[in-house]
Amino acid sequence: MEVVKVENVTRVYRMGEVETHALRGVSLSIENSEFTALVGPSGSGKTTLLQLIGCLDQPSSGKVFINGKDVSKLNRSRRADTRRGTIGFIFQFFALIPTLTAYENIEMPLLLTGESANGRRERVRHLLEAVDLKDRANHRPDQLSGGEQQRVAIARALATQPALILADEPTANLDTPNGKQVMEIMTRLNQETGVTFVFATHDPRVIQFARRVITLRDGLVTDNNGKGK
């Protein structure tokens, strides 16, 4: 089943008189349980495409479907509803809430979906274990290493058992061993839970983990089905 379907999508940014065509007509589809890399040089449109798939932004033209539902024309509030529970995000800069502990950061999406207290406790403990951070539960982000923070972010993205996890350069700010560990955890979770992962990267060491590679250049898909490893 298709989790993501993108139909002839364009995205134009206007800065005063200047128009920048970030995407010039992209079509693709991503099936359930895929582990897919979006690759391409800087400015090729990877991040823009991720944002459109993640309902963080709207296309200038074309359509985006998530789980068969057209999300390209939804208002802000409906897009927030779609993100919550359906899509998990992992960002390059870890993006944890600095004032909350690892446990509370993972719990945050569950609170937004209205999960019960017991359900939350069980889920957060399970996820802390899955990313191997059980003993760091009560640490704040500034007390965690970069690798640990990104693992908390992965656990948070998985918290609501979403259909899709989008990761934008998830290892860009990590050293090689930590980057590798993060990718291994993502791969394992993809295999164990079947959740679809789409991640943007231009790091060959990360690309090799992908089972499918979509290449973008100048806002267009140049290779829709390259192979990773």
């Binding site: 993640g54 963080l56 927030a80 993100r83 919550r84 960002f91 800069f93 600095p98 945050m108």
Partner: peptide, 16 residues
């Protein structure tokens, strides 16, 4: 600003 973006990405609504 970024924290607000993250919370919003997690599905937190404007009114929250």
């Amino acid at each position: 600003t970024r924290e607000i973006g993250v919370l919003s990405a997690l599905g937190m609504k404007g009114r929250q």
